[in-house]
Design a protein around this nucleic acid. Sequence first.
DNA 1: TGACAAAGCGGAACGTTGCTCCGTATCGTC
DNA 2: GACGATACGGAGCAACGTTCCGCTTTGTCA
Lengths: 204, 204
Amino acid sequence: MPPAPAAPSGEPRPARSKRADAQRNQQTLLKAAAAVFVTSGVDAPIRQIAAEAGVGMGTIYRHFPTRADLVVAVYRHQVEACAEAGPRLLADADSPFAALREWVDLFVDFLVTKHGLANAMQSDSGGFDALHSYFLDRLVPVCAQLLDAAVDADEIAPDTQALELMRGIGNLCVGRDGDPDYDPRRMVALLLRGLRQTGAPSGA
Amino acid sequence: MPPAPAAPSGEPRPARSKRADAQRNQQTLLKAAAAVFVTSGVDAPIRQIAAEAGVGMGTIYRHFPTRADLVVAVYRHQVEACAEAGPRLLADADSPFAALREWVDLFVDFLVTKHGLANAMQSDSGGFDALHSYFLDRLVPVCAQLLDAAVDADEIAPDTQALELMRGIGNLCVGRDGDPDYDPRRMVALLLRGLRQTGAPSGA
DNA sequence: TGACAAAGCGGAACGTTGCTCCGTATCGTC
DNA sequence: GACGATACGGAGCAACGTTCCGCTTTGTCA
């Protein structure tokens, strides 16, 4: 029996107990994928990423069984940063709604600067389901917290779900990148305006 | 010299001066495409549409050089109906904003009942550019008219472009069809609420 | 009616992509 | 140094979009 893997429990550091070349390849792949995503979008052919990394396609599929896994891995840090910014903004901003607005700005920035990410996230085909899941699982609770705070402060009506709002915002961000006729930020701002409580606290 | 085509000018009825079998095939194709779109979405493989129609693929490409041409042809009537509803609603509704809201409802209904149409319309790949162009060219002026009327009535702020609004609405309609967690209509309603003039007429 | 050219048709063929599978090379260990 | 486990590479398959060209159908004219 080979020496059993030392860590019996969770997998906070997923790169343990793997062969050295495998770990190297994983890093190489992440770098290559990030580079290709910038130039060709997250829909870039797997072959292209493999070529950029100088590995075979089998290697990609072994490390990242679905395309979504690769995308998630590449952008994990940024999603994490966005998630962590939520509570901080809530503590620092003038009001919960202001915090929500700033947080949404962060989220939108993230989406629009990643060519095709928003498109991919909304797509119901192409094996992006996992991506969808991860991003949303991580960010929805953060959004919900901001939303709840704004509701408690009577700044917005209580009948909007965080998941729905985030998908709406994500949707608004799909489209060509530098289109001067369509600015996702303006539309998102409109959406947030619509969220805002106008008149009485909550009505009969 | 063969008999010169009789009609020298425009082409309001495009099906003239074509061979009888070609005209028949064009109709067959439209029916087949409509049927396939319902079951498989507008992204259905060309081969599938050809098979449904009982024709070769060359025939499809001859009649509809791009997929967008086919989609446009299939949904032309509905787009037309939507366009024509604009002025009527404006005349009948209680206020310009109410008319706008009703018209947007129509538009959203159209998008969400056509599996994948919204997705396709926003896509920047797949040769859907023409689709994008036609739908928008036809509907944007209608939307602009409604928007202008609402601005004149001081119901909304004057700084939103029809094209941008329509793309935003279209984007909000992207996504899986029967997802209980995401209702495009709710998000569109929120967007319209954000459009609404809240306080003073427009002041500095 | 028959013949003939133009118009239209079908689908084979090519390029691209996603994904799998297995013979081979590399690594870690004894 | 040897040996098993692990990982790698890329050939191969299927699905799709699109083109291209030999064959068929149609309309016309004598």
